[in-house]
Design a protein around this nucleic acid. Structure first.
Lengths: 241, 241
DNA sequence: TTGTCTTATTGTATTTTATACTATAACTAT
DNA sequence: ATAGTTATAGTATAAAATACAATAAGACAA
């Protein structure tokens, strides 16, 4: 109960797992380190140290805004990663100190989940060499505990969908087909869904509204397009809860 | 991207919301500050700065162990609170600096949920003047954002129960009646449950096993006692997931 | 012993929701 | 015209959730 150094004083960052859906599988947005260091081509989750005047949500919004240009993206804090071992790799620490021009001994991170339409044009961010989508099943080994963070985010997204079903539409174009929606659910739950039962369920959900429009440029029967109606959704949620 | 001070460097604490159930309502375990300062009789959540060598889970276990003597209490990290404004109150900061003998400018906290049988004898902890249970509906104004933390923990406990129904038994004595269990659910969900439907459901759950024992010393018909069977529970969970 | 009080215990009918199935229609491309 | 591909839709069954009330058991007091 005395020495100045037994308590953790540290830097705190946010890291964002941004999901996108390419009509087949979930993808995660990764950035390429731009450190002018050898062996620094690694991919990692986008993130940032938190600024003095910010809270963690604001920092995450800032990171996401840099990537997408969207001011207030849908996001959700989901877990803090605090192991002293997460800055065990000297190369990671070297990159950190280069990128932030600060000596960094210990770093904890607060991880965020976010969702983005995969066709959206992304900004180029000075801090990084490039950014790109990566299928969740083909993730490279990443620095820090970023692989573990993605792992846990995959469980979190299911809980999130159950709590707030509307978030899935952030992953789809504004007009989408029933099979796109079904494949998205299959990707999130990693489980095949019965086509007919799914159809029945969608029919019964009033905030998923069928349009008088169909797909174009497909080499088979064109499917009907649907849209998500946020107003109807909010009404429904208000009556249930 | 330059100055040494634009990034947050800070102390990190854990705060624990420990729930107890007094066969009627949920209670939270609060500690009384022991700061030898005027106006320092405030109640707050038990917590601690994180030590250098620890991760947050270990710090939370340490705090809970101090309170209850239990080495590995069931706990769950549920949210980080990071607003720069949380150390706005000079009195809170004075208490912090007194308690930890460190100058503390900014402090974020990682909050934990935990559960405890309310009749358990609690330790006396040097750092605090006293500890006691407080009904969730009668919480005093607490320092920092502890009121908000409890608020959000009440939503979190419902999600936790849905994910892992076994945790409710951490709040009950090892032998309990059906109505105790029902009242606990009613307290968690803040909703009355139909007695007969609840009964039917309990009958169908094999890991809630009826005993050949009844309540004693009650001024009415004594109810049957039940126990929770962890082995049967684990079997069931293994077959479902 | 009787009656009153309090809580324990239980079943049935209905509705809603989930599941397990396949046949045909529409469109494209050859 | 035909083959290939995906879209679309209904029925029967099972499981789960809901609504609803009468009787039993024991404690206690008169």
């Amino acid at each position: 109960m005395s020495g100045k150094d037994q308590f953790m004083r540290t830097y705190v960052s946010v890291d964002c797992v941004v999901f996108g859906f390419d009509s087949n599988q979930l993808n995660v947005l990764l950035v390429e380190r731009n450190a002018q260091l050898p062996n620094s081509r690694d991919l990692k989750l986008p993130g940032s140290l938190i600024y003095q005047h910010e809270n963690a949500d604001e920092a995450a919004h800032r990171v996401l805004n840099e990537l997408t240009g969207i001011k207030k993206m849908t996001l959700k804090q989901f877990k803090s990663f605090t192991s002293p071992k997460r800055t065990q790799n000297p190369e990671d620490v070297r990159w950190l100190e280069f990128a932030y021009n600060n000596k960094i001994d210990r770093l904890i991170t607060i991880s965020y989940l976010s969702l983005c339409k995969i066709n959206r044009r992304l900004n180029s961010v000075a801090k990084y060499q490039s950014l790109d989508w990566c299928p969740v099943n083909e993730l490279p080994a990443m620095p820090f505990d970023h692989n573990q963070i993605v792992e846990e985010s995959l469980e979190e997204i299911r809980r999130w969908v159950e709590f707030d079903p509307a978030i899935v539409f952030e992953l789809l174009p504004s007009k989408f087909t029933e099979s796109e929606l079904r494949k998205l659910y299959e990707a999130i739950y990693r489980k095949e869904l019965d086509v007919r039962n799914f159809h029945k369920k969608i029919l019964g959900i009033e905030y998923i509204v069928p349009l008088d429009e169909r797909q174009s440029n497909v080499a088979h029967r064109a499917a009907r397009l649907y849209k998500f109606d946020k107003i109807l959704y909010n009404k429904r949620m208000a009556t249930i809860e």
